[in-house]
Design a protein around this nucleic acid. Sequence first.
DNA 1: ATCCGAAATGACCGGTCGTCATTTCGCGGA
DNA 2: TCCGCGAAATGACGACCGGTCATTTCGGAT
Lengths: 223, 223
Amino acid sequence: MTADASAAPRRAGRPLEMVLSRTRITAAALALITTEGYGGFTMSSLARTLKVAPSALYNHVSSKQEVLQWLEDHVMTMVDVSGFGSEPWDDAMRRWAWSYRDVFARHSPLVPLVAVLPVTGAPETLKMYETVAVGLAGAGVPVETIIPAIVAVESFIFGSALDANAPADIFDTGELADSSPTFTAAVLGQDRSTGERPADVAFQFGLEALLAAVPATRPGPDA
Amino acid sequence: MTADASAAPRRAGRPLEMVLSRTRITAAALALITTEGYGGFTMSSLARTLKVAPSALYNHVSSKQEVLQWLEDHVMTMVDVSGFGSEPWDDAMRRWAWSYRDVFARHSPLVPLVAVLPVTGAPETLKMYETVAVGLAGAGVPVETIIPAIVAVESFIFGSALDANAPADIFDTGELADSSPTFTAAVLGQDRSTGERPADVAFQFGLEALLAAVPATRPGPDA
DNA sequence: ATCCGAAATGACCGGTCGTCATTTCGCGGA
DNA sequence: TCCGCGAAATGACGACCGGTCATTTCGGAT
């Protein structure tokens, strides 16, 4: 369809040389966002880091959305699925879910896009799904519950990724404290003995609840 | 801080009359978004429906974000918390969670904002939290687990609200089907006998899992 | 030597949020 | 009764955004 990863430079001449391609654009976008954040990510700035006019990008990309979708698919490769095939299925899921959440907590603006992005055109994402599906199937999870289980865990992960970016004082009731005594007490009564961030203990709680509900019959590939 | 709900008109004269206020702006924003969707929601269009110049809005609002935050707090009043105090705690939670998801599925662009919005300045949201917290406390849930439980369920709800807007064919693997046989089989093997939408069965699955993990000692206020 | 076509260019468009100096006008105090 | 204060609307404007399009450049194949 569009471009290719290889493409060895032939000479040192100015133009030609496959200046723009899906992989180069994606890499530049990732680098730009890593240093400047999503606020500073514009088609102009992206073109600037690629030493190219903004309009040149549109010879390879149909919209900014598409760049973000490429980026999202690439970011998905950072999710750790190494547990599947080498750990009990639930440990593999834990490793997967935590790293999944961490990655998208760092890329929260991408979260609303995932829901819209079909797996076609997102090969890396599909690869991840396949790995997880194989892991669950291997654990004896019935076929018809694999997708609901994945979707439920994934939804929880996305919501938690957004939550991880919440300011620490988000539940400070301030002057409205006396109109919400029970909630205020609950906020103050959180267990702060362990050093874990509140978002992490909530994620831990929810993840274990979801894993406990997955009907697996076997412990995993080699546990 | 800003404006007030009452404010009775005095005459039919052109100006004066409390043209703009938090409640009127919020109501207009909701009406506009209901008819035009979030894509058509701009400060200009909002001003137009209020028969006012766009810049006039900035005498009452510091940014578009703030309008959206007002809107979000208002939307929260549409969430059904009527179960708390009249049903067993878990039924109340079910009613709450489902309506919560439905409301924000219809207002998914607001989801990324909730994570950032402190409860101060969002009194309706705080009211909802208080009701839920009272319900959980009344069910004997230990104080220190109330917040993690709420946050976990809420994160799951937000993720599911995004997921509910996914296109039906999001998991169509298309031409990449043979590179992901297990996942493709799982997609095809979903239980389609019941008429439920896939997003709904995933939500059902996840919600029950989370509720089962909430350590309640009493059934509820009057069950 | 010539032509083709991929790819970069720069001007340009419509629209966005937000700012600012200025004006309007009702109301309360003298 | 008059006046002036201040809240609130105005419209022009700025900076920037994503995206389009006609034009140009230039390497490689014929």
